[in-house]
Design a protein around this nucleic acid. Structure first.
Lengths: 212, 212
DNA sequence: TGGTGTGAACCGCTTCACAGCT
DNA sequence: AGCTGTGAAGCGGTTCACACCA
């Protein structure tokens, strides 16, 4: 397997690519550049062979007997992930979590930029959060077209999530990140990533009950 | 396999148990009780055989030829997960995300209660967010002992996360939920769940690039 | 009849082990 | 000599298919 855009690559490999990128950024900040699969893998809590296999789906990025250049590898991973460019996004739901997302600087630094936010609450519409204007949902079509938005983020309460997702999809948004603790139905030509925080706590409770 | 607390249960099964619980709550809200594995599985976006297999690790909860009682099944899952009781928690990092967590009502409803928050910023110490007092980190040992805290939540910037985790562990906290986008090193008798939002966006970018 | 419970087949990710380069 | 790249083996989770039972 060799070039980008290949078919049978595990989703979890893509996830780990993101971890590697985050870790490489940290190494570079510390002024390091040469790094072995051993070291990078340990920093990410994975097996070194895993890391090398993950990379091998996309090409060869290291030097045998030496290791990887953090700089070069990071650039390659960003190219693979598509985080070497900007992604305009919209947010639905300007509650506490929505606020946090609008202010999450690490997203902006990686090219993920909110161009507008939406809410149904008249008290919130017209406000500006971290330079981002809050619109009524009715304005969605206009904004999406105007800014060529490709990613929609859902931070609404549970019971509004599907409806918002449907609106996003109707306007041609093809990528959705859903923070509402409910699973979203969607056609196969739309990609959805779920993040249900509440379930993390359930898992912790389960394992705490069974420690030792 | 039969009783609770068994050895070889996939972590992802525990995760799905949380999804099932969330979904069952919704069915009950709508006044439904009888539900088939087919229907519940579809609501969660999984295969019905998967759902039945997940449950079979813990016992038999349905009636052949009929289905499951949502009420009864939910109670059973809560018992398994340990979400049929209260879990006192502390939060480290009262930024935007920390605020969101302190105000996240769905956690409270499921028994996960913050008893205190911590920050290093003197401007934040002494404030009260959603009835929860913000302390200096130095107060951690006292609070943990006083409230028998078993879960610590990290919502600090990346570079403080490991240090906070170490403090948690030193005070005897055995369960950690980490929202900082970095992986936490920890001894095997401490359970850690990571939630790195930034990687969700990376995944979306990757798949958007390759749609069609 | 109809839907659960589950052994067994299947599939896909992980890990190993070593060839291949520098 | 040392570390990457990778075929192949290993392993664990998913799905099938049907026995079982209300």
């Amino acid at each position: 397997m060799n070039s980008m855009s290949d078919f049978r690559i595990p989703g979890i490999t893509i996830y780990r690519l993101g971890m590697y990128a985050r870790s490489l950024e940290r190494f570079l900040q510390e002024g390091r550049d040469l790094i072995s699969s051993e070291e990078l893998a340990r920093a990410c809590g994975v097996n070194p062979a895993q890391l090398r296999k993950d990379l091998s789906y996309f090409g060869q990025f290291g030097v045998r007997g030496v290791g990887y250049s953090a700089q070069t590898l990071l650039k390659s991973i960003r190219r693979i992930l598509g985080t070497d460019r900007e992604w305009p996004m919209v947010l639905a739901g300007v509650g506490h979590l929505g606020h946090a997302l609008l202010s999450y600087e690490i997203l902006t630094r990686r090219g993920f930029k909110f161009v507008a936010a939406f809410d149904v609450d008249p008290a919130k519409i017209g406000k500006v959060v971290n330079d981002i204007y809050v619109y009524a949902m009715e304005q969605l079509p206009y904004i999406v077209r105007e800014h060529r938005v490709e990613i929609g983020v859902i931070a609404t309460p549970c019971d509004a999530a599907q409806e918002v997702a449907d609106s996003f999809i109707r306007e041609g948004i093809k990528g959705i990140v859903n923070f509402a603790p409910t699973s979203i139905k969607h056609p196969p030509n739309v990609v959805v990533e779920q993040s249900d925080m509440t379930i993390l706590f359930d898992k912790i409770a389960y394992y705490l009950l069974r420690l030792d």
